[in-house]
Write a protein that binds this DNA or RNA. Structure first.
Lengths: 165, 165
DNA sequence: AAACAATGTCAACATTGTTGACGTATTATT
DNA sequence: AATAATACGTCAACAATGTTGACATTGTTT
C-alpha cells in the first residue's frame, strides 16, 4: 500500500518542506550576524565540525557551489581563526580542514540552537514516527547522493564512538 | 515514549533536511532558467497558483522577504504577463494576484516536476509513514505559523472541492 | 482635514551565487 | 626528465536575491 498522492496532498507537502526549512534555518541567524557571518559560513562550520579533516573538494561536493563561492567564506573563516588547514600527509596538495577552539565553540553554539528547535518540535513523536521522518527525508535526496550522506554518517559515528559514551 | 535525541541523530536530522531541500529545490531550475526566472519567481508562481486572489501583504508574510525584494520579481512576472492584479472589491487599495493562462501553465509544469520527484521518492511509504513525515514537517514550522499554513491548506481544499473530483 | 493602510518605487548596498582565466604546488604518466 | 593531470587559490566581472531608508500614490478611517 502506498501513500496518498493526490494533488492537494503533494502541494501541501511541497509547502510544508518550504516552511519547515524557512523556519528551521532562521534560528541561528542572530548568533551568526554577531560575528558578521551568514548562512554560508554556518554551512562550512557545520560540515567541518561534523567531518574534521574534510578536504576542500569534498566540501564543494557537499555544498554544490563553485570553489570561488566557497573560497570567499572559507577565506574569512580562516583569516579570523575559526578554521585552519593542514597539508595532507600522503598527498600534500590536499588541504584538510579543521575547526579551531573558537570555531568549535561557535559551531557548537549554533548546533545547540538547532538541537533545541528540533527537540522542541519533535518531542511527542514516537521513535517509529521519528524514524519515518528521517527515512522520508533521506528518500527525498537524489539517489546518487544518499550513499555519500549515509557514508559520512557512518564515519561520524565511528569517529565519535567511545568519546561520547 | 519519545524519539531518540542523541547528538548524532540530531546532527543527522539537520543534514537530512539540508540535503533533501537542496535536491528538492534543484529540480525545477532548468525549466525556470528557460524563462530567465529563478527560484524567487517560482515561489511567487507557486503561492499565487495555490492561493488565487492572494494579496501582496499576505505573500510578503509567506515568503518573509522585504516588499522591495518581492516587488522586483513580481514586477517582472506582471510585465511578462505571467501574473496579473485585480483591485480589491471592498478595499480598493488591495491588489489581488492571479496567474494568467501562461502563468498557470508554467506553474503547473513546475508543479509536475516536483510531483514526480516526491512521488518517486516516497513510493513505497505507507500512508501512516507518509502522515508521520507530514506531521513532522508541520511540527518543525514555528508555532505561530502552523495555524496560518493549515488555514491556507483548508482554503485551497475548499476552493478545489468539486472542481477536481 | 488628518491619520492610517496597502502598495509601488528609487537608490544604495550586502550576501551569496555564477563563469572565465590564470597561477602554484604537487603528483602521476609517459 | 618532460608532460600532463590534480588540488587548490585568486582576481575580476557579473547575476540573483536579500537588506534598509526614503518617499509617493491611492484609498480608507477617524
Amino acid at each position: 500500500m502506498e501513500f496518498d498522492k493526490d494533488e492537494q496532498g503533494l502541494y501541501e507537502f511541497i509547502e510544508l518542506l518550504f516552511f519547515a526549512y524557512r523556519d528551521f534555518t532562521a534560528g541561528p541567524d542572530g548568533e551568526l550576524m554577531a560575528f558578521g557571518f551568514g548562512r554560508a559560513h554556518h554551512r562550512v562550520l557545520h560540515f567541518v565540525s561534523r567531518n574534521p579533516g574534510l578536504m576542500v573538494a569534498e566540501l564543494l561536493d557537499i555544498l554544490r557551489v563553485s570553489k570561488q563561492s566557497l573560497n570567499r567564506v572559507l577565506k574569512q573563516l580562516i583569516e579570523e581563526k575559526f578554521v585552519f588547514q593542514e597539508q595532507g600527509a600522503g598527498d600534500r596538495r590536499r588541504r584538510h580542514l579543521f575547526l579551531t577552539a573558537k570555531g568549535q565553540e561557535l559551531a557548537d553554539r549554533l548546533g545547540a540552537i538547532q538541537f533545541e528547535q528540533i527537540s522542541g518540535s519533535l518531542k511527542g513523536f514516537s521513535p517509529e514516527a521519528y524514524q519515518n521522518i528521517c527515512d522520508g527525508l533521506l528518500s527525498l535526496i537524489a539517489d546518487d547522493d544518499q550513499k555519500e550522506v549515509l557514508g559520512r554518517f557512518d564515519e561520524a559515528r565511528k569517529r565519535n564512538r567511545g568519546s561520547d559514551e
